[in-house]
């Protein structure tokens, strides 16, 4: 069946069609040709809901299957994701989209998915990124890392430019946060001697908790050996209101963050 399907593709491609030709050589385009296309995104949403949401959740944050909103942020590429959809993941429940699904439908699903986490094409890039980098170094880098420098208490932002929409970053910076990100929930541990340790929760269960504390020490504690473990009520990330970060500095900061599209270790 599979051989037949490939031959059919080859036959069609001989008659000339650019997208299918890429399929024929086994190399899809590296970048989604439909990225940011409003019509494609709309269709992709329908396809995602009917074919993927059952396992990955309506918001793509995972049910039986994994969270798909962080895949670009974690370094996957359009081309790599296309291959995953096209081939499935053998030995798991992740099926191939099947030979009846044309390439453009796969790209539409991916175009939609990208809107759930990544900046949209309508995001206006404005502001002075050089000043933004200065703002980042003085205000953010204590806790956030970008391209190998900065703190580790908060998430690494080296890919934030392709992982988060501008308005999502604004909400976060200004303190209008919804939920704590997994791995960054605030936690307060009271030791037997009364001393408290504040940090962010990396993992835990009924018997233990694993954290990174304010000094970036990663450490596990057995609940039986401490007095108390409490979730913190406030994010470890401070609120940067207009008095702390002017509109203009925020604008510059966003311009700088928009340039962060992936850490290249070879660049020093």
């Amino acid at each position: 069946m599979r051989v037949l399907a490939v031959s059919a593709f080859a036959a069609v491609c001989l008659m000339g069609c650019p997208v299918l030709r890429a399929q024929d050589t086994g190399e899809p385009p590296a970048v989604n040709p439909l990225s940011g296309n409003a019509v494609a995104i709309q269709t992709g949403m329908g396809l995602f809901r009917s074919r993927c949401a059952d396992c990955h959740g309506m918001d793509a944050r995972g049910v039986r299957g994994p969270d798909l909103t962080q895949v670009w942020a974690s370094g996957r590429t359009d081309g790599g994701l296309f291959r995953t959809l096209r081939r499935g993941i053998p030995g798991t429940e992740m099926p191939s989209v099947g030979p009846r699904t044309p390439d453009d439908e796969v790209w539409k699903i991916l175009a939609y998915l990208k809107t759930l986490a990544a900046p949209t094409a309508t995001d206006v890039v404005a502001g002075n990124s050089q000043n933004g980098e200065r703002v980042f170094r003085t205000q953010c880098a204590g806790c956030h890392r970008a391209n190998g420098t900065g703190g580790r208490l908060g998430p690494d932002l080296s890919r934030i430019g392709i992982a988060r929409a501008r308005n999502a970053i604004v909400r976060r910076v200004r303190g209008a946060t919804e939920d704590f990100l997994d791995g960054y929930e605030p936690v307060i541990i009271t030791l037997k001697n009364g001393q408290t340790v504040r940090g962010v929760r990396k993992n835990g269960d009924l018997f233990s908790v694993q954290i990174m504390d304010g000094r970036e020490r990663i450490q596990g504690y057995l609940r039986a050996d401490v007095k108390d473990v409490q979730p913190g009520k406030q994010s470890a990330m401070p609120v940067f209101g207009p008095e702390r970060l002017s509109e203009s500095d925020l604008n510059d900061l966003l311009a700088y963050l928009g340039t962060l599209k992936g850490f290249d270790p070879s660049v020093k």
Partner: peptide
Amino acid sequence: RFTGGAQQ
């Protein structure tokens, strides 16, 4: 798959 929906 023939489920006609999803949950959140």
